[in-house]
Amino acid sequence: MDYKAVIIGGSAGSFQVVTKIIASLPSNYPLPVILCLHRLKHVRSGFVEALSIKSQMPIVEPNDKDAIKTGKIYLAPANYHLYVELGNKFSLSTEDSVNHSRPSIDLSFFSAAYNYKKKLVGIILSGANKDGALGLKSVKDSGGLTIVQDPNECQVPTMTLASMNATNVDHVFSTKRIVDFLLSLA
């Protein structure tokens, strides 16, 4: 299957997992990786820097209307929702918080699912609320591939369990198997 993008959502307990995943991806990884992680909305700086320490791919917080390119990791910026638009571009939104979150994982996943359809891999990691569950369902309903981190491995399994309740996910993987799977797409 030719995928066009990978989108990853996570919250409490996901930082180390995300760090492990992105550290394993080579600098020439052939897909854009979109990260929507819950974060303090008034802290704008520091997150990209922290994630970048071990990453071989450049990590950026996209500006509104930036093109989505392969070989990059995109992090949803603080206090904005991040959408994927037709024409393979990002857009940002200051609409109300969803599930107490801005960025909201559900909203990023909805827009990515709508635009990439079956050519999207959606992954939900550790987290303490249900944001992301409906998003992952929309990936599944649009024909994309859905993965959740094994709840037994999650520091906080609420988000992954909610996702598994919301839809029939394709894979429940440990962090290591998530990495292996992503590398198999390269």
Partner: peptide, 22 residues
């Protein structure tokens, strides 16, 4: 502009100089 907006995608935006990037 908003801190994640840019004039980079605009032609006429070249008439403007970015004086505070953050």
């Amino acid at each position: 502009l908003g801190n994640k907006e840019t004039l980079d995608h605009s032609e006429v935006g070249k008439k403007m100089q970015l004086v505070n990037e953050t």
